Structure formats: C-alpha cells, structure tokens
Amino acid sequence: MSNQPSPSPGNQEEAPPQSEHLNIKVTDNNNEVFFKIKRTTQLKKLMDAFCDRQGKQFHSVRFLFDGTRVNPTDNPEMLDMQDGDTLEVHQEQIGGC
C-alpha cells in the first residue's frame, strides 16, 4: 500500500466559469463610457450606443481592440475579450495618395 494520497477530482485547478456578461470600457481619450454586454452580442449595438451618447457619427470614427480594427459584426467571444477590456475610439482619417 502506498502512503501517497490519490488525486481527487476536487484537487484539480479549474478555470472559473465565464460570466455571460462582460463590462467593456469604451474610450476616445476624452470620455470613458462603460457598457455591460453579452459575450455573443454584436458590437454594433455598443458602437451605436457610444456614438449616440457622445454625439458622433458612426461613419466618422473607428473602434480598435488591442490595436486591431473591430467590425460591427464582431462579438466579444470572437475577439476573446475579457471582463474589463477597453475599446479605443479614434477619428477616421482619410488621406494619402
């Protein structure tokens, strides 16, 4: 007989269950707005709400997550977003030849 305890299922480290909702901060360097959305909700709803609250035109701004442009059809689950992550809003710039 061995004196070593047998591993029990309760000793294994498990990741905490993910919440259905995320708190996302949206900032344009002047204003910060916090949103609570589901992981499967398209980010277009969040983008539209931010633009409405800040009085901006949707087509005149761009949303970035970790330096990558966010599409309106993306959702937090697709982008592997975590609770407390930030979306950055930048003014659309057109130019160059």
Rank of each mutant, 00 (worst) to 15 (best):
M1V: 09
M1F: 13
M1Q: 09
S2W: 04
S2Y: 02
S2F: 04
N3E: 07
N3V: 08
Q4W: 04
S6A: 05
S6I: 11
S6V: 13
P7R: 10
P7E: 07
S8V: 12
P9T: 03
P9M: 01
P9W: 04
P9I: 04
N11G: 05
Q12W: 04
Q12Y: 08
Q12A: 07
Q12F: 08
E13S: 08
E14K: 14
E14H: 05
A15M: 04
P16G: 04
Q18F: 00
Q18S: 07
E20F: 01
H21T: 00
L22V: 11
N23M: 12
N23A: 12
I24M: 09
K25S: 15
V26H: 03
V26I: 13
V26W: 02
T27A: 07
T27D: 01
D28H: 11
D28M: 08
D28C: 05
D28S: 09
N30T: 14
N30F: 08
N30W: 05
N31L: 05
N31P: 01
V33T: 06
F34R: 13
F34G: 03
K36N: 11
I37A: 06
I37W: 09
R39E: 11
T41P: 05
T41V: 12
Q42H: 14
L43F: 06
L43D: 07
K44S: 15
K44V: 14
K44I: 15
K45G: 03
K45C: 06
L46S: 07
M47P: 02
D48S: 13
A49N: 13
F50A: 01
C51Y: 00
D52Q: 13
D52T: 07
R53E: 05
R53K: 14
R53M: 08
R53Y: 01
Q54I: 01
G55R: 00
Q57K: 12
H59V: 03
S60G: 01
S60C: 03
V61C: 02
V61Y: 03
R62P: 02
L64C: 04
L64T: 08
F65D: 03
F65Y: 15
F65W: 14
D66P: 02
D66M: 09
D66N: 14
G67N: 09
G67A: 03
G67W: 11
T68I: 13
T68N: 13
R69C: 03
R69N: 06
V70I: 15
V70G: 01
N71P: 03
N71R: 14
N71T: 06
P72A: 08
P72W: 06
T73M: 05
D74M: 06
D74K: 05
D74A: 07
N75Y: 15
N75W: 12
N75S: 14
N75H: 15
P76F: 12
E77W: 08
E77G: 02
M78F: 12
M78Q: 13
L79N: 10
M81R: 09
M81F: 08
D83N: 15
D83Q: 04
D85N: 11
D85H: 12
T86A: 07
L87S: 02
V89M: 04
V89P: 00
V89Q: 00
H90Q: 12
H90M: 14
H90T: 11
H90N: 04
Q91H: 07
Q91E: 08
E92S: 09
E92D: 06
Q93D: 00
Q93C: 09
Q93N: 06
I94A: 12
G96R: 00
